Amino acid sequence: MNKAFVKESDNDDEDDGLGPEAVALPAGTKNYITTEGYRRLRAELAHLMNEERPEVVQVVSWAASNGDRSENGDYLYGKKRLREIDRRMRFLTKRLEVAEVVNPATQPNKDQVFFGATVEYCDKAGETFRVTIVGVDEAEPLQGRISWISPVARALLKAHEGDTVTLRTPGGVDELDILEISYPTD
């Protein structure tokens, strides 16, 4: 079989393993992250490096020793999984190197919305939301953890309890009333 049909890419750094879930940081900004988010990324990197990668390497070595590699599913899948793991490890390493850890508990202005704040707000329709503003690598919107670069977070930043802020969306303009601001305690 022609190599052109089976070879994936000479350059594994093409997309740098960011994947669809990775969010690019705006140019000139820092990679803010909470202490808990930093710990989670470090734990993921350690797990990949110390547990998952060695297991896959062992499977690939075993599969390679079985002979013909061209139709060996364990070998082909293992090599693909190794590339994915290595890509994710490079991504995590780069993000951790440039991470600026912020401990929201030490925020002096607890009456104002900053990174790490948990904000309860109400929109024009009267629906109440509770979100925590976190780093781009730890955002989980369905769990109420939004990135500090998201439109909602940008609208809320620097506001005080009782303020009304304007949120511009593709669907139009919305007014958000800030009901409560809180920060975690150490």
Rank of each mutant, 00 (worst) to 15 (best):
D123V: 15
L176N: 01
L179M: 08
D13H: 11
D68T: 06
V6S: 06
A153W: 01
D13R: 09
G78D: 00
E71W: 11
E161G: 10
F115Q: 03
T34K: 00
R83I: 10
E51P: 01
E51A: 06
G144L: 08
S61K: 11
N72F: 15
L41C: 03
G172L: 07
M49P: 01
R130E: 14
E71Q: 13
H47I: 01
L142C: 10
I178E: 05
S61L: 11
T185P: 04
E100S: 09
G28E: 06
N72K: 14
L176D: 01
R42T: 08
R81S: 01
A43T: 07
T118N: 13
K94Y: 09
T128P: 11
R88H: 15
Q58K: 07
V165P: 03
V59F: 04
A99F: 04
K124L: 13
N103H: 09
K94Q: 09
E84R: 06
E97M: 13
E14C: 08
A153N: 03
A159F: 08
V59A: 05
F129A: 10
T128C: 14
Q58N: 05
L156I: 02
T29V: 09
A105Q: 15
L92T: 02
L156A: 02
V134Y: 07
G37C: 07
I133Q: 00
L48Y: 03
S70F: 05
G144I: 07
V57C: 04
M49K: 11
D137F: 02
V59M: 10
D86G: 06
D16K: 09
T29D: 12
K158M: 03
T118W: 08
G126F: 15
G19H: 14
E127K: 15
D74G: 14
L25V: 13
P54A: 15
N11H: 07
D15H: 07
V136C: 10
M89S: 14
C122A: 14
T118V: 14
V131P: 01
D10S: 11
C122W: 09
D86K: 00
E175P: 03
S70R: 09
N66Q: 15
V136D: 08
P54E: 05
E138H: 01
L156D: 00
S70I: 10
E36S: 11
Q112V: 14
I85M: 01
L142Q: 15
L96A: 12
E8K: 14
Y183I: 02
A139N: 11
G73K: 13
R154W: 01
V119S: 00
L82E: 02
R95F: 15
T106A: 08
M89R: 15
V6F: 14
L92D: 02
D13Y: 10
R40M: 07
P108N: 13
G126S: 11
G171M: 14
T118Y: 15
T132N: 08
E140H: 13
A105R: 08
D137R: 06
H47A: 03
T132G: 01
I33P: 02
P184M: 05
T34F: 00
I181R: 06
A27E: 12
G19M: 13
S70M: 10
I133M: 05
Y32F: 09
E138I: 00
N103R: 07
E36Y: 13
V134I: 10
A64I: 10
